[in-house]
């Protein structure tokens, strides 16, 4: 950043020593006005985000410690509201429901309370499988798109089409493709009821998700690939490095920062997956993700849903933390530009 443009002109009119002092004072004053300017410009955004995010989250945390009012589905007796302690969290984490004797018992199978850990498992299953597939496929797509050939820009445009289609439409489109009489069964000569059981239902959702989001991954990786100077490859070629060696020794390490950020984005996005399973299966047959469970719970009790959404939020936060802390996916640093951000 060229912060010395003005002090330089000052130095031009005064002596070297005076100029030096002026520069210090000028920079100090400049930093102060810049700080004030920055605050004025940024504060509105911070306030707006505070209202639309921080307020609901704090609200949800407060709600999560309250008892849901209403008739108890098991005992039929009226349950008053009021402070509940960690009862809502115990309800989800240990899958405990109110028992007729006033204590708690294991939630009956099929009830929302009994689905927490399976929803957690489903969410992580979808996340790991889709992100691994998208990373591998995305890398391959990026490598192809990085080459120079006729029709390259047509390919890049084509790749954007799945990305631009709303997820709700994507879900309906693949729902149609995977219908019993649909094109998928005809194409492969199979007669699978795709949304009827766990394996096929999950497969259908994974394929739809991979189709929709691999382009995003590919474009991020492509942007990383294009930062690698061609000379590096030339040099390696001359040194006799094989294509595989060039990939593992040059491409992978150099593209790693961009790749990690892309993976981080995708992982956090996949952990909150809702649209595809909600529309394709309605969460049936082992496709209930945490987000779907929260939404199902909302109409059965806000406070309990708030506890579940807080757990979901914490899980996602924890994963993001692990990524940034231990795997070096520093999205903030790459956003502040090279060399900056560190030590601040």
């Amino acid at each position: 950043m060229s912060t010395h443009a003005q002090p330089t002109t000052v130095r031009g009119t005064a002596g070297p020593n005076a100029g030096h002092e002026n520069k210090e004072v000028g920079q100090d004053r400049k930093a102060k006005t810049q700080g004030r300017w920055a605050a004025t410009l940024i504060l509105p955004t911070v306030i707006v985000l505070g209202i639309v995010i921080v307020y609901p989250v704090v609200n949800a945390i407060i709600m999560s410690f309250q008892q849901d009012e209403g008739l108890d589905p098991v005992t039929g007796s009226f349950v008053a509201g009021g402070f509940a302690g960690v009862a809502n969290y115990v309800h989800w984490l240990f899958q405990q429901c109110p028992a007729p004797d006033g204590g708690t018992t294991a939630c009956s199978p099929g009830s929302l309370g009994a689905q927490f850990w399976s929803a957690m498992g489903t969410t992580f299953f979808f996340t790991v499988v889709t992100v691994v597939l998208e990373t591998v496929l995305g890398f391959w797509m990026a490598i192809i798109m990085a080459r120079t050939f006729k029709g390259r820009s047509a390919l890049r445009a084509a790749v954007l089409v799945p990305w631009a289609i709303p997820t709700a439409v994507t879900a309906k489109l693949w729902f149609f493709i995977f219908a019993f009489d649909g094109i998928a069964n005809k194409l492969f000569g199979t007669a699978i009821l795709w949304t009827g059981s766990e394996g096929p239902a999950r497969t259908a959702i994974i394929i739809a998700d991979v189709w929709k989001t691999t382009p995003f991954m590919a474009l991020l990786i492509l942007a990383g690939l294009q930062m690698i100077p061609a000379e590096v490859y030339e040099a390696a070629k001359v040194d006799g490095a094989s294509a595989w060696q060039r990939f593992t020794q040059i491409t992978l390490p150099l593209v790693k920062p961009a790749l990690m950020v892309a993976i981080l984005f995708r992982v956090l996005d996949a952990l909150r997956m809702y649209d595809l399973p909600a529309i394709m299966t309605g969460g049936a047959n082992g496709t209930t993700t945490l987000s779907i469970l929260v939404v199902d719970q909302i109409r059965q009790g806000f406070n309990s849903a708030a506890a579940l959404s807080t757990i979901t939020f914490l899980v996602i936060f924890l994963v993001a933390f692990i990524f940034v802390r231990f795997l070096g996916a520093n999205a903030v640093q790459s956003a502040t530009g090279p060399g900056k951000g560190k030590g601040k």
Partner: peptide, 27 residues
């Protein structure tokens, strides 16, 4: 502009963009 807490503000903004929708919908 150069200012203190720039890193913090960017982190906040990035964190906000990754925020799960369900955590907002309930409250």
């Amino acid at each position: 502009l150069e200012f203190r807490f720039k890193f913090l503000v960017l982190g906040f903004v990035l964190g906000a963009s990754m925020f799960p929708g369900v955590a907002l919908v309930t409250p």
